[in-house]
């Protein structure tokens, strides 16, 4: 993985027409995904999931169980891929790291006073450093939405750049914009451009802690920011919609959107992720249905 280059904040960002974005999204959902395309897509979705638990009530046991699920999604179906990563709080990184040793599944840690981002920069840096010391492969940071909405773009940019520097070559950095708090698609685009300029390896929609989380229009606007960056620099940036995508069908619509907006180079776990907890089971259920022809009760699939 080559290191992202860092540039200054772009002077302006393109304007976004919400009506047009919603119309385009409706076209993605009208694609008919059948037979081999569907099966291949479902496997792809599973391999792109960051299996997530971010609760105050998380225990080491729960983390270990989830890690097993991530590396062995459903033993009775052969050939299922492992998920891309698990996503946990910094304090749980050590446990997850140990549980996933040798599986190829990454450990992602949220940081920077997740989910609100309401902490001094020093705390955010310390938070991130802790996660890295525990061995996190990926850092999911949140931006300071308050500062961004006040117009302090340089502050937001600097924070991202500092965290990025800390990650160095050890971990890939995902930058959470928390789009549900940004209010307009114009701001989503602006925040995307700032995060990309500051060195984000991935841009990510949401913490999953507030509603709305990931939506197709928000994701499309972010994908377009990634595409424009690629057009002007030749450099790829990853995308992670998170929160709110719980059905396999809607996950497939996201893949259609990525394919038709960015191209197939982005259709793998290096460049596209789903942040989700319930999605994995629905995908496995759909794969089972495609294989056996029958839907099985949810009780046949482990919930952890």
């Amino acid at each position: 993985m080559t290191q992202r280059k860092i540039s200054g904040i772009p002077a302006t960002s393109p304007r976004i027409d919400q009506v047009g974005v919603e119309e385009r999204c409706a076209r993605f959902t009208s694609r008919s995904i059948k037979s081999t395309t569907k099966m291949q897509g479902l496997h792809m979705v599973l391999s792109m999931i960051d299996l997530t638990t971010l609760e105050g009530a998380d225990t080491e046991g729960k983390i270990r169980q989830m890690c097993y699920k991530a590396s062995h999604p459903h033993e009775s179906i052969k050939g299922l891929p492992a998920t891309a990563a698990v996503c946990v709080y910094p304090t749980m990184v050590g446990v997850a790291k140990k549980a996933l040793q040798g599986t190829g599944v990454n450990v992602a840690s949220v940081s920077t006073a997740f989910p609100s981002g309401q902490g001094p920069t020093e705390v955010k840096l310390a938070d991130t450093k802790l996660a890295l010391d525990f061995g996190a492969d990926e850092i999911d940071m949140v931006i300071s939405r308050g500062r961004f909405l006040q117009g302090e773009e340089q502050f937001v940019y600097d924070e991202i750049a500092m965290i990025k520097e800390l990650c160095g070559k050890k971990a890939r950095l995902k930058v959470i914009l928390e789009t549900g708090e940004l209010g307009t698609l114009d701001r989503v685009r602006r925040a995307s451009d700032i995060a990309i300029a500051a060195g984000a390896d991935f841009i990510k929609t949401s913490t999953g802690k507030i509603s709305p989380a990931a939506t197709m229009p928000v994701t499309l606007v972010m994908l377009e920011a990634i595409r424009d960056h690629y057009f002007s620099t030749g450099e790829m940036v990853g995308m992670k919609p998170a929160g709110g995508i719980s059905s396999a069908k809607s996950a497939l619509h996201y893949l259609v959107m990525v394919k038709e907006t960015l191209g197939e180079e982005w259709l793998n776990k290096d460049w596209f992720r789903f942040g989700a907890s319930r999605l994995a089971n629905d995908v496995i259920m759909q794969i089972a249905k495609q294989t056996t022809g029958n839907y099985q009760s949810g009780d046949y699939f482990s919930k952890d």
Binding site: K38, G41, Y230, G263, E265
Partner: peptide, 18 residues
């Protein structure tokens, strides 16, 4: 992707849905 002049191929093609 346009920049690479790479033809969209095989990776994830839509199956016929007549």
């Amino acid at each position: 992707m346009a920049g690479k002049e790479k033809k969209e191929s095989g990776l994830w093609e839509y199956s016929p849905a007549p």
